[in-house]
Design a protein around this nucleic acid. Structure first.
Lengths: 204, 204
DNA sequence: TATAGCCCTATCCCTAAGCATAGGATATTG
DNA sequence: CAATATCCTATGCTTAGGGATAGGGCTATA
């Protein structure tokens, strides 16, 4: 029987979901409620045949959280499951090596068939997320430093303050703000903050 | 048999959840996948004994979405259910007339008992959300105009741009930005945007 | 009618943000 | 080694954001 791990911090959602998948009778399901717990489970129980990762759980980021999980799971399929899904995010997830992207808006029966498909090595993405695949829309790669600055922006800090925290000059922060805004295609810091949140780029 | 309406845009979550509650054998459960659909259901089928409203669904805002639902449902209990729950938000929901606040992190069995409690006219809130009840932390009331400006801020627009859209002078926007930032206790527009998103004050 | 809340405007001011350009210091890697 | 990427700094500039203060007009309501 195939082993599946579901990682989601919402007990209510995760457990009813795990129940539902178990009731299909074909899978054994384990659970985790954070990224750390997820990695622990994998290390303890060995690689799973499929890992379903919630996009908005403690410790989860894109792409790092996904990459860590893939590595820990010996590159067995890992799919992202999310409620607040944008096509852009879906593409980022797939580009980073996810085997699938499952919005929580899909029907339960569809989920089961998606799981079967993923277990047999397939890639699953709903049509609507592939249709809007406008060309040249790369997943922006932010450097560690840029992420530091982005974190500060998201907390509403001023450049000067971020500079103090990171122990660099204010001009340097301005530089990072400019470049990361370009990469995110944001028109200013506020926009960048909102985009960052949409994309789950940061984690407090 | 008590009638319950669950409104959540995530089919997967809503349906597995509805199943779970139905399996308790005490309730009949209807579903809606947006605020509008929720209001429609109430108008068509009459008031429900309990409505569970997802916090992050199309059309949902606090407090307006909640108030509309309460009104439509003849003030029968309406509870908010949310994944991204902050104590602050919980307090805002309760202050606006919600009968309860159910984070999606609660255990499924706890949910059932909470539902029973709500149906008998009680108020349900997890302890942790009441404990951190620091005094004097009012739910900020933003005027319609302030919400308009806030929407613009969240889209990364400049004051000048917002002014053009709303057909007023730029100074007016600055005024609104200042006052709404005060009300939200934000240090600047970026911070205000993040807080607004946390509190679900805005909807595109 | 008086009070209060909301909305709009004006003027003055200072600081923060953002852009461009240029250069130096490290690392890593083909 | 040369190429690349990242990070930091500097100078100079323009515009945007944010704050204080002081009005006027409107509407609902006590």
């Amino acid at each position: 029987m195939k082993k599946i791990l579901i990682a989601d911090d919402h007990d209510l959602v995760r457990e009813t979901l795990a129940d539902y998948i178990r009731n299909a009778g074909e899978f054994s399901v384990d659970q985790a409620s954070s990224l750390d717990e997820c990695l622990d489970q994998i290390h303890q129980n060995g690689a799973y045949d499929l890992v379903l990762l919630d996009f908005t759980m403690p410790g989860m980021t894109l792409p790092d959280g996904l990459l860590h999980t893939l590595e820990a799971n010996s590159n067995h399929p890992v799919a992202i499951i999310s409620g607040t899904a944008s096509p852009e995010t879906a593409r980022r997830a797939l580009a980073s090596g996810a085997a699938g992207f499952l919005p929580k808006t899909i029907a339960p029966e569809t989920l089961i068939s998606a799981v079967r498909h993923l277990l047999s090595g397939g890639i699953y993405t709903p049509q609507q997320f592939l249709e809007s695949e406008k060309g040249g829309d790369h997943a922006p790669h932010l450097t560690p430093r840029e992420l530091d600055v982005l974190r500060g922006i998201c907390e509403g800090k001023a450049n000067k303050e971020i500079a103090r925290d990171l122990e660099v000059q204010e001009v340097t922060i301005k530089l990072h703000v400019k470049t990361l805004s370009r990469k995110l295609q944001a028109r200013n810091r506020t926009h960048a903050a909102m985009i960052a949140r949409d994309m789950n780029l940061i984690w407090p």
